[in-house]
Every structure is written in structure tokens, then in C-alpha cells.
């Protein structure tokens, strides 16, 4: 006697043998692979955002036009002016050698840079939350040394952050769409099962099975393929992320802060298969109960 399956609550409807059931786990796996990657990317960008903020926020640089023949007087005047401004924490002229090295890639090594009227650069750190009026400062600096310009990293940061936000929204939308695909797998599997097993369902109803009992068959089936597909999809995505992490540029190359996930974020990603499974189960139940209540 088959002790195990014969009398336990195992599948009364042969849902796992349905043709479509073979693809169910793979569709869920593919969908969850994308969901995991999209959410990982979203979280990584969110983490990076913090890096960009600390790297760029609170900093401006000031360009003083080439002091042709005037020595460092103009630069010194501007530095003094900046240091006297209460909202400014620090102002430091950048060594002209550094300025040249920064330009070298564009001008070519050995270009006659000595002869070029390169502007002098001053790095300025603002006091946090000082509420600096950049425009007013620029007017004042321009009055002191005509042609002095402020390069506000804050503006660049705003663009970067706006783009980062767009990427995050995009990531969430992609995750939502593929999450929906995973959910729809449960709807399709349930609908297909309901129609292909109409006869068995009729028999079960005839012997007193309620809608809840029949729906449970579909809930169990959806749970089965969702947990399988979810684990496979998530594991593949984790593998892809770890592999990708190896090629990520470290340090500050290209101002790309490290795109890493915190332990909590890894845990969030690991929760995707069970969460997807619960959603699939709920979806299967609602789908089955609604379909069953429509037959008289």
C-alpha cells in the first residue's frame, strides 16, 4: 500500500502533470531572475547615491582667469575673499601642476602648456547647511577679479541624483513588471487547471468538496512551482551579481562609488522567493475561488 500519498493531502487533482506545469517553474525562475537583478541594481544605485552626495556635495571650485603677468596676486585676493565668507569652511588653491595634469588628457602630453593662459583653480569646501548664495558670491568674486567663475558641483550633483532617481524608478518598474509576470503564471496555471480538470472538480464537488478545498489544490500547486522557480531564479541572479561584482571598478575610478549591497539588502533579495510564493498562493486562491463561484 502506498502509505505516503494515498491518504495524505497530496494532490487530488493531477495538476503537476498538466502540460503547462512543466514551464511554470521556468517562467517564474526567469521572471524572478530579472526582478532580483532589477532590485539589486536599484539598491546599488541608492547606495551609490550616498557616495556621490558625500563626494560632491558641499564643494565648489572657483576659476580665476589666467593671471597674465600678475603673479599670484589675483588668486591670493580671491582666496582671502573666500576665506572671509562665513559659509565657507575652507578655500585652497590647486597646484598649477595638478591643473596641467588634469588637462593633459585633453591637450596632449608635452603640449606647450606653460604658454597657455590656464585659469587658476581654487577648491572650496562649504560649511554644511550654511545656506550659501552661490550667485551672490560669484558676483562679489567677479567684482574683485573680473572673469572669476564658480563651478558648482552641486548643480552637477543634482543632475546625477536626478538620473540616479530615474534609474531607480526604472528598476522598480522593471521589477514590478516581471513580478506581475510571475504572478500571472499562477493565474494561468490555475485557469488552465480549472478548465482541464473540470470533470474531476465536478466529482469532488459531488462528494461534498467546497470551493476552499478545491482552491487549496491550486494554491498548493502554485506554491510548489513558485518556490522552485523562485529559488532557481534568485540563485542565478545572485550568481550573476557576485560575478558582476568582480568586474566592478573599485575605489573612485570615474567617480563611480562602490556599488555594493549591504547584508540587509542581500537578505531582502533572499526573501524574494518566499514573498513571490506567498503572492502566487494568494493569487491562485483568489483566481480559483472567483472561477468556482461563477459556476452554479
Amino acid at each position: 500500500m502506498t502509505a505516503g500519498s494515498a491518504y495524505s493531502a497530496a494532490g487530488v487533482l493531477p495538476l503537476r502533470r498538466d502540460a503547462g506545469s512543466r514551464y511554470g517553474p521556468w517562467i517564474v525562475a526567469a521572471a524572478l531572475f530579472v526582478v532580483t537583478l532589477a532590485l539589486a541594481a536599484t539598491m546599488a544605485i541608492r547606495n551609490a547615491e550616498q557616495g556621490w552626495r558625500t563626494a560632491l556635495a558641499g564643494k565648489i571650485s572657483v576659476q580665476v582667469p589666467a593671471p597674465s603677468g600678475t603673479g599670484g596676486e589675483a588668486v591670493a585676493e580671491i582666496v582671502a575673499l573666500l576665506r572671509a565668507t562665513p559659509a565657507i569652511a575652507d578655500a585652497e588653491p590647486v597646484d598649477p601642476v595638478v591643473v596641467r595634469s588634469l588637462l593633459e588628457p585633453w591637450l596632449g602630453a608635452g603640449a606647450e602648456m606653460e604658454a597657455l593662459p590656464l585659469p587658476a583653480l581654487i577648491d572650496v569646501r562649504l560649511r554644511p547647511d550654511a545656506g550659501m548664495d552661490i550667485v551672490a558670491l560669484e558676483v562679489a568674486l567677479d567684482a574683485a577679479v573680473p572673469g572669476t567663475r564658480i563651478d558648482d558641483h552641486g548643480i552637477r550633483l543634482a543632475y546625477v541624483l536626478r538620473f540616479a532617481l530615474a534609474l531607480q524608478v526604472f528598476g522598480v518598474v522593471v521589477a514590478a513588471i516581471f513580478g506581475l509576470i510571475a504572478t500571472m503564471t499562477a493565474i494561468f496555471a490555475t485557469r488552465a487547471g480549472l478548465s482541464s480538470h473540470r470533470e474531476e472538480i465536478g466529482i469532488l464537488q459531488a462528494i461534498g468538496a467546497g470551493d476552499g478545498y478545491i482552491a487549496r489544490q491550486f494554491v498548493a500547486h502554485s506554491a510548489n512551482f513558485s518556490i522552485k522557480g523562485g529559488i532557481v531564479g534568485c540563485a542565478l541572479a545572485a550568481g550573476a551579481l557576485i560575478l558582476l561584482g568582480r568586474y566592478a571598478p573599485g575605489g573612485n575610478a570615474f567617480m563611480v562609488p562602490e556599488m555594493t549591497l549591504s547584508p540587509i539588502q542581500w537578505i531582502v533579495l533572499a526573501c524574494l522567493p518566499p514573498v513571490a510564493t506567498v503572492i502566487a498562493m494568494a493569487t491562485a486562491r483568489v483566481t480559483a475561488m472567483r472561477a468556482l463561484s461563477r459556476v452554479i
Partner: peptide
């Protein structure tokens, strides 16, 4: 298994 159904239900 068929006979068991009503009891399972």
C-alpha cells in the same frame, strides 16, 4: 485514494 476522498474532504 478514490474511496478516501470523502474522508480527506
Amino acid at each position: 485514494e478514490n474511496v478516501a476522498l470523502p474522508l480527506r474532504i
